[in-house]
Each structure stands twice: as structure tokens, then as C-alpha cells.
């Protein structure tokens, strides 16, 4: 089993470090606080119609937005990192960029999946449907998720890591072209979406609700940072294990082959008497 020494991370059998554990604890605490804020302390969205006097709004469903919206932001962020790292792969061609791109894509896809799930849970009571085919933002988000699912499928194929890195970088750069469509779809196709333009103004978010929303951004950022740190280290170790395996195979092969045999294999005459071959 490879240890973190191979990746220059110190003599440990784990991807954790004192600082990353601290980050993990902070993340867990933040998630717990967000849960309490979003699902217990904040008020449901209940408004009174000025003419009829009836209650309307999103009621308790609005609580899901404290999770859903921050997840959207970290999804964009993860895929943005993936895009920058993919450019780095094509320009710099170093493993660091490749592992960064892979890490960001994997985490971004998890977040994107959660965006779809939390959005669907929110949509059931508010839109009265789990899924709305006519919603452009929903469709473009699904397409984004599917494109990165393909990216991860490509990543799982065993081949030369450098070649795989270049192929994956191209797929990522095409896939991130969808992000502006996702983000701007509510503006460009205003009549083809159920997503509202801006929830902030409509819901009159202020005080505790505003704090909860921004605390959600911070928490999602912490989760992203913690996941990124560990997944990057795992990816780096995987790469180190592959390199180590290749290097070991070369050494093993060299020990089996004499200099004379190598010369014969490339069509040259061996120099002097042939030395003993290792059987």
C-alpha cells in the first residue's frame, strides 16, 4: 500500500494532516450550525396577498434554498477550477494540473448531483412537480451533470496518464461552455423557465435569513475545501503509485536483460564475450 511519503506528504498512512483535521472539524461544526439555522431557527416564507389577504409564499420549502443555492455556487466554483486546471494540462502538461482538474471535476459532479436532488425536493411543493422538462435552467444543469459524468467515465479508463490527461482536458473545456448557459438561462429564456430571476429581492431576505444564506456559502466552501484537499492527495498518490509501478517494472525488466541481449534486440553486435544472462 502506498503511503503519503510517495507524494512527499510525510510518513503517514492517511491523507489527513493536523491542519486538514482542523478543517474537517470546522466543516462539521459549520454543517451542524447551518442545519440548525436553516431548518429550525429561520422563519418559513409566508407572505400576505395585499388584495385578498391570503397567505402565499414558499412556506417551509424555502429552507431548502439555504442548501441548494450554496451548492450551486460551489458547483460553478469546482467546474471553474476544473476548466482552469484543464487549460493548465494542455499548456503546462504537468501531473499537478491533471490531478487538480480530476479532483475538481469529481467534486463538482457530486455537488451538481446534489443541486439536482435538492432542487427537485424544493420544486415538489413549490412548483408541484419533481421535474419540469420545460425549465431551461434545469435542462442545462442536467446536461452539465451528464457531460461531467462522461468526463469521469473517461477518467476511469486505464491508459497512458499523459494521454488521458489531454483527452479529459478537452472534454472538460467543452463541458464548461454549458455553465454560462446554466447561469444566464433565466435571463435569456425568461418565458421558458420556472426559476425566478432573483430570490433575494422577492423573498425580502434580511437579518437571520440573509445570514443563514451567506453562512451556507461559507459552509459549502469549507466542504469543498476539505473534500478537495483529501481527493487531491488521493489522486496524487494514485499517480505516484502508477509511476512507482512503471519504474519498478523497468528496473525488474532491466535486471532480467543483459547488455548483450539489448544490443542484439536493436540489431547491434554484442561487445566482447557474452555475459551470463539471468534466467
Amino acid at each position: 500500500m502506498a503511503t503519503t511519503t510517495d507524494a512527499g506528504l510525510g510518513e503517514r498512512d492517511t491523507t489527513g494532516s493536523p491542519r486538514s483535521r482542523l478543517l474537517g472539524i470546522a466543516t462539521l461544526i459549520a454543517v451542524a450550525i447551518l442545519g440548525v439555522l436553516a431548518f429550525a431557527l429561520t422563519e418559513p416564507d409566508v407572505r400576505i396577498h395585499p388584495e385578498t389577504g391570503e397567505e402565499f409564499g414558499q412556506f417551509d420549502a424555502v429552507r431548502m434554498l439555504y442548501v441548494h443555492v450554496p451548492l450551486v455556487i460551489v458547483t460553478y466554483l469546482s467546474y471553474g477550477i476544473c476548466a482552469v486546471a484543464s487549460i493548465g494540462v494542455l499548456v503546462k502538461r504537468t501531473p499537478w494540473w491533471d490531478v487538480t482538474a480530476h479532483t475538481a471535476a469529481e467534486i463538482g459532479t457530486i455537488f451538481c448531483g446534489l443541486v439536482l436532488v435538492t432542487g427537485s425536493i424544493w420544486g415538489r411543493p413549490v412548483w408541484n412537480t419533481w421535474w419540469e422538462w420545460g425549465d431551461v435552467r434545469l435542462m442545462t444543469t442536467l446536461v452539465l451533470f451528464l457531460m461531467f459524468t462522461g468526463y469521469l467515465a473517461l477518467r476511469r479508463i486505464t491508459e497512458d496518464p499523459r494521454r488521458q490527461a489531454r483527452r479529459a482536458a478537452v472534454v472538460a473545456l467543452v463541458a464548461v461552455l454549458d455553465i454560462p448557459l446554466v447561469n444566464r438561462s433565466v435571463e435569456w429564456w425568461e418565458n421558458r423557465t420556472l426559476h425566478q430571476r432573483s430570490t433575494l429581492g422577492e423573498l425580502k431576505i434580511e437579518d437571520l435569513t440573509l445570514f443563514t444564506l451567506f453562512f451556507g456559502f461559507v459552509t459549502a466552501g469549507l466542504v469543498l475545501a476539505w473534500l478537495f484537499l483529501h481527493r487531491f492527495r488521493v489522486g496524487w498518490l494514485e499517480r505516484a503509485a502508477i509511476d512507482h509501478g512503471v519504474a519498478a517494472a523497468i528496473v525488474e525488466r532491466q535486471s532480467e536483460t543483459s547488455d548483450a541481449e539489448v544490443r542484439r534486440s536493436v540489431g547491434e553486435q554484442p561487445e566482447g564475450p557474452e555475459e551470463g544472462l539471468v534466467p
Binding site: V143, L146, M147, T149, A153, D178
Partner: peptide, 17 residues
């Protein structure tokens, strides 16, 4: 080696729009 199965997974989402 798996291009027959990989190509649809990669290409069809891109062509969805």
C-alpha cells in the same frame, strides 16, 4: 478499447442543446 460505449456517453450530452 471502449470507444463504442464511451463515445455516446461523451457526445450525446454535448449534442443535447
Amino acid at each position: 478499447g471502449v470507444r463504442e460505449t464511451l463515445l455516446p456517453i461523451l457526445l450525446l450530452p454535448v449534442l443535447a442543446p
